[in-house]
């Protein structure tokens, strides 16, 4: 099994219904069915591509680091607006460096709490790991 095909469950045995030789359905414990891993990998590849694209845009100064935290935590402006109790358009504006730089500590704290980072991380444009943790190292960007 290649790395690409490795189970998305990190080795946690799930159960599924399968017909035995007598045709009776039974719960079988085991790893996930291989096509599931393939399509899950496909979804993650798409997300990783989006993260890479976001990093590039942040380095070029087109987007603020808030966009990175949003993308790496699988959110869009609508969902982040719900979590931060703000209008969608306001969140969108905060993803632009011009508006992000002017944010007060209160709003930054709100974002920091959602993404498990500090206000300083956001102010300094540090790109930390997502809430669920990852092996990706941090790097800095000009927010």
């Amino acid at each position: 099994m290649t790395e690409q095909e490795q189970s998305v469950t990190n080795g946690i045995a799930t159960v599924s219904y399968q017909a035995g030789n007598d045709g009776r359905q039974q719960l079988i414990s085991g790893d996930m069915w291989q096509p599931v891993n393939i399509v899950n990998r496909q979804a993650w590849d798409a997300i990783e591509k989006q993260i890479q694209h976001t990093r590039e845009k942040i380095h070029r100064g087109s987007w603020s680091c808030l966009r990175y935290y949003m993308v790496i935590n699988h959110m869009d402006t609508g969902l982040l607006a719900k979590y931060s109790n703000q209008l969608r358009i306001v969140v969108y504006l905060h993803t632009l460096p011009l508006f992000f730089k002017r944010l007060g500590t209160g709003t930054l704290q709100k974002y920091a709490d959602i993404f498990d980072v500090t206000v300083e991380d956001l102010q300094q444009g540090k790109l930390r790991a997502p809430v669920y943790g990852t092996e990706q190292g941090e790097e800095h960007a000009a927010c």
Partner: peptide
């Protein structure tokens, strides 16, 4: 991507590949 999404929805954890059809058969 659309096709993968259809399959991903079908194969939600542990349905054994067939949506919930095998569970309903059980």
């Amino acid at each position: 991507l659309h096709l993968g999404h259809v399959v991903r929805m079908q194969e939600e954890i542990g349905t054994g590949g067939g949506g919930f059809r095998f569970m309903y058969a059980a």
